Computed example of a mutant assay.
Amino acid sequence: MRIAVLADIHGNVLALDAVLEDLRRRGGAELFVNLGDSVSGPLWPRETMERLQALNLPTVRGNHDRRVAAGPHDEMWASDLYARERLTAAQREVLFTQPLTLEIAPGVIAFHARPDDDEKYLADTVVNSQLVRAPLAAIRRRLKALDPGCRIALCGHSHRAELIRIPDGPIIFNPGSIGCPAYDDSTPPAHVSEQGSPHARYGIVTLDGAGQPDLFEAIAVDYDHEAAARQAEHAGRPEWAHALRTGFMSG
């Protein structure tokens, strides 16, 4: 069985469509999962939400989904507010009621950031203002809330593609971000996450006949990122435009 793993679309419907077309060319998948943060960003939140609702994918709630749906107006980040103003009340309700975790196949559990928190990093830490892989001991501690029967943990949030096998534990797979290749976060300690290229990222997990992981693929797809960058500029977000063009926050 092939599982298509989508994460962190952030309102970039052009990148989402490119990923779906690439997946079609590769023969599709029997199961899909969306790891959240679907619409927040100065791009096409309404169009992205409509596309995802038509697909009706199993989806978990990300921290920005929660903020867009129910965050106090005066505390919302600019990207969340942009999306909130362009979604219907019914669409916001859909975002808010998505589950924090979801078992999409036996032993395969999906969540956005951590199994018990939609905003704290699972496999990452901040070093010199940059997201890097966290020490194994820290990752183990953060997995304590995970169901002990989990064999594969699918997560997003950091926008960094990762594949980590925990000794005597699950395999953690983060496919990277479809629609937002770099971001900065002022939450202490302030940091950036940079994929290093403008490509849309997604993943495919292949399970063998016994349901065991046989293949993990982290895929980078080219798309019209220049059009996405121009949309961000039109929305008054030059830093987003730079990230969409380059995969970096500076330079």
Rank of each mutant, 00 (worst) to 15 (best):
Arg114Met: 11
Pro72Ser: 12
Arg26Asp: 14
Asp118Lys: 01
Asp74Ser: 07
Leu122Gly: 02
Leu16Lys: 04
Glu103Pro: 09
Phe96Gly: 05
Asn56Leu: 02
Asp147Gln: 08
Leu131Thr: 04
Pro106Leu: 02
Arg92Gly: 12
Phe111Met: 01
Leu131Pro: 08
Glu119Lys: 10
Asp147Leu: 05
Gly41Leu: 03
Val108Gly: 08
Leu16Pro: 10
Glu119Asp: 11
Leu20Gly: 13
Leu35Val: 03
Arg51Gln: 10
Phe32Gly: 07
Ala138Asp: 15
Asn128Thr: 12
Pro45Phe: 04
Leu55Met: 10
Ala83Trp: 03
Leu23Met: 14
Leu52Arg: 11
Glu103Asn: 08
Glu119Leu: 00
Ala70Cys: 12
Ser129Glu: 10
Asp22Glu: 13
Leu136Gly: 05
Gln98Cys: 11
Ala54Glu: 15
Asp17Ser: 08
Val127Leu: 10
Tyr82Pro: 03
Pro115Asp: 04
Ile109Trp: 04
Leu87His: 03
Tyr121Val: 01
Leu136Glu: 15
Ala105His: 14
Pro99Asp: 00
Val94Ala: 13
Trp77Pro: 00
Leu55Trp: 04
Phe111Arg: 03
Glu47Asn: 08
Ala70Asp: 10
Gln91His: 12
Pro115Asn: 05
Val68Phe: 12
Glu50Asn: 00
Gly11Tyr: 07
Leu31Trp: 01
Leu31Cys: 05
Tyr121Met: 03
Ala78Thr: 06
Asp37Ser: 09
Gly11Gln: 13
Lys120Cys: 07
Thr59Gly: 07
Phe111His: 06
Val13Asp: 14
Tyr121Ile: 03
Asn12Gln: 03
Leu35His: 08
Pro58Ser: 08
Ile109Met: 13
Trp77Asp: 10
Arg86Gln: 09
Asp37Glu: 03
Arg67His: 10
Gln98Lys: 11
Thr125Gln: 14
Leu43Lys: 08
Ser38Phe: 00
Ala70Arg: 14
Leu20Trp: 13
Glu50His: 01
Gly62Glu: 02
Ser129Pro: 01
Arg84Lys: 09
Lys120Pro: 00
Trp44Leu: 12
Glu75Phe: 06
Arg61His: 02
Ala105Arg: 15
Leu131Phe: 09
Ala18Ile: 02
Thr48Cys: 00
Asn12Lys: 09
Glu47Phe: 03
Asp22Cys: 02
Arg24Glu: 15
Trp77Gly: 14
Asp65Gly: 07
Ala105Pro: 05
Thr97Pro: 01
Asn56Val: 06
Leu102Trp: 10
Phe96Tyr: 15
Leu35Glu: 03
Trp44Arg: 14
Ile109Lys: 14
Arg51His: 08
Asp124Arg: 13
Ala69Met: 13
Glu50Val: 04
Tyr82Trp: 15
Leu122Ser: 02
Ile109Pro: 10
Ser40Leu: 00
Gly27Trp: 12
Ala15Gln: 08
Leu52Ser: 11
Leu146Asn: 08
Val39Gly: 14
Arg24Asp: 15
His64Trp: 13
Trp77Gln: 08
Gly62Ala: 05
Ile139Gln: 14
Thr59Glu: 06
Ile104Trp: 01
Pro99Lys: 11
Asn12Gly: 07
Arg61Cys: 10
Val126Tyr: 01
Leu131Arg: 09
Gly27His: 12
Arg133Met: 12
Leu146Trp: 05
Val126His: 04
Glu85His: 06
Val94Gln: 11
Asn63Glu: 05
Arg141Asp: 15
Ala18Pro: 06
Gly41Asn: 01
Gly28Tyr: 13
Leu87Ser: 06
Pro106Ile: 02
Pro72Trp: 10
Leu16Val: 06
Glu21Met: 02
Arg24Trp: 07
Glu21Val: 01
